[in-house]
Design a protein around this nucleic acid. Sequence first.
DNA 1: CTGAAAGCGCTTACAG
DNA 2: CTGAAAGCGCTTACAG
Lengths: 340, 340
Amino acid sequence: MDKQQKNKSVKMNIYNIANEAGVSIATVSRVLNNSPSVSAKTKEKVLSVIGNYNYVPSAIAQNLSLRTSGNLIGIVCYNLQDLYYATAVSLLESSLRKRGHHIILSCTGEDYLQKQKSIEMLITKQVDAVILIGSVFLDEYGNNAYLVNAAKHCPLVIINGKVRSENIYSFYCDDFTAVRECVHKMYQKHRNFLFLYDADTYSGNLKLTGFQEGMKECGLDPTGRTLRCDPTPESAAVRFDEIYDTLKKIDAVITANDVLAAGVLNAALRRNLKVPEDISIVGYNNSIITQCTTPHLSSIDNGLEQLCNMAVEGLTKLLHGESIEGITMVSPHLVLRDTM
Amino acid sequence: MDKQQKNKSVKMNIYNIANEAGVSIATVSRVLNNSPSVSAKTKEKVLSVIGNYNYVPSAIAQNLSLRTSGNLIGIVCYNLQDLYYATAVSLLESSLRKRGHHIILSCTGEDYLQKQKSIEMLITKQVDAVILIGSVFLDEYGNNAYLVNAAKHCPLVIINGKVRSENIYSFYCDDFTAVRECVHKMYQKHRNFLFLYDADTYSGNLKLTGFQEGMKECGLDPTGRTLRCDPTPESAAVRFDEIYDTLKKIDAVITANDVLAAGVLNAALRRNLKVPEDISIVGYNNSIITQCTTPHLSSIDNGLEQLCNMAVEGLTKLLHGESIEGITMVSPHLVLRDTM
DNA sequence: CTGAAAGCGCTTACAG
DNA sequence: CTGAAAGCGCTTACAG
């Protein structure tokens, strides 16, 4: 057999290797697993055959045989093109990889059926746990049954969602309070508020209701002052422009993320408004976008890194048989820059 | 056995189910696979036991038994916190998921050893293929041996990298020509060029050399006019400021991505430069950042979506036994907005 | 329509 | 130090 052929990608298994080396599969397995009880000579021979054929044992079969898991963690996320989720997945991935886990990733958007399908697939793949990021949506009957059901197979970790049920662990950011307090703070100088958002996620709703509650507490009426737009700066700018005159000169805007805040800032500058003198703008996520604009955006930092770290730490404990709290909350904080 | 216990998460296997239903595992398997040759009565009985125990068969074991693959595709990417890579992974994931594949994700940064480890892990997990995004780095000997080796096990698809070898398929964007032509275009009005970049990836180098070549063709000396900075707007702004006076009023800046362009724009505005009258700025990636700034950034669109689509299409063909080109190139184009 | 048996690619007691 | 055998959780010819 010439070199050319040896390197051919014929899928080798342990039987082929054993045959070629003139030993039993048990022996091949032993050298694969560095068992001390193999003679140097045999070991060398087997190793050379393995090398020649570029043989790599199947982790799948090893796990089956050893009754061990594949150290797989499923991540189901809402939308990876949103920097927030991308950052979350990135943080989780690196943290989990350091602990010897591997990631199966699925992005599902708002479609709960797709989400359900993804979770079922992950369970089928024997994942040790699944992590949902900002992707808790109700099913057609308005409940979380599909999550409760999934949790019978492995722990479910939810980031920025809250489900109280057996074997489900929620980690979320108190966006409600953050926005509510932000309204109070802005109320010191402003009266004409506007809230812009672009998604009906759990945390999106916390922000929205936080805004409404804050306004009411300040004796203001939130009606007509919460607007949904598409997830682009342009859409935010257009919505802002549409409503600016109607609502008698808006002077305080909070947005559900920094991209929308940038859009509002653009529209405000286009109108020759002075920021923050004429209008204050506060974004959300404290992302790199805040530093891409002139002036830089003030933004609410939702402690994503902390959230992800806590989630992975919690998950690690669970996988080690320890128990953890069902619900963990992180407090966000306002980061002041130039737009407020 | 009460309901409480039934719902307990005892890992069931096909033997337990068969026992409980009073049939053989073959029969259970048949109802699992919807075989027509099971009596309605038996089927019902088995199904009820399966339901009671919330049993889900192991796809791992099924694949082993059927000698089928798990439809797993490995994705190794450089840095998911960079919007460019996040978008790439998102596009690949949704496209692959539609075709019935699942994704194992690994983010490795610049560390080639980590990259190698990730690729080996993926092969061990029996992936059908691995896709590398912007993450081709040379090993300590300055070569790609670890990739060539990996390609003996499954096809390697490289996005924004170029490796010519058996079973390796490269899809890249002609960033060299894009930047080179951009320099020529800017040369119509400008003479004082600057190029800012933040990573030594393959495509990063294409952009860099495209800039140098373009300048030379225009009779300009690129020396000292290419600067590396950190991947933040602030770092870009600082580097720009440092060099602005030294280099006698820079009036044309090209950056390796939009974040850096935003940083330069900030610094320029801070100096009260008029954009684009006093200085033109062109970013790269045509990301959402371009629309977050005032004025909006002109940017080179590297056709990421097209690249990802072509890669997945190519991969699908490969997996169906068809053959495809080893190297595929996509042409980027300049998108003019307000900064040039 | 149903079950016993062999097999997927591995590992590890158990003998020798 | 080495091999034959049983087992991981499945599927599917082969008999009946």
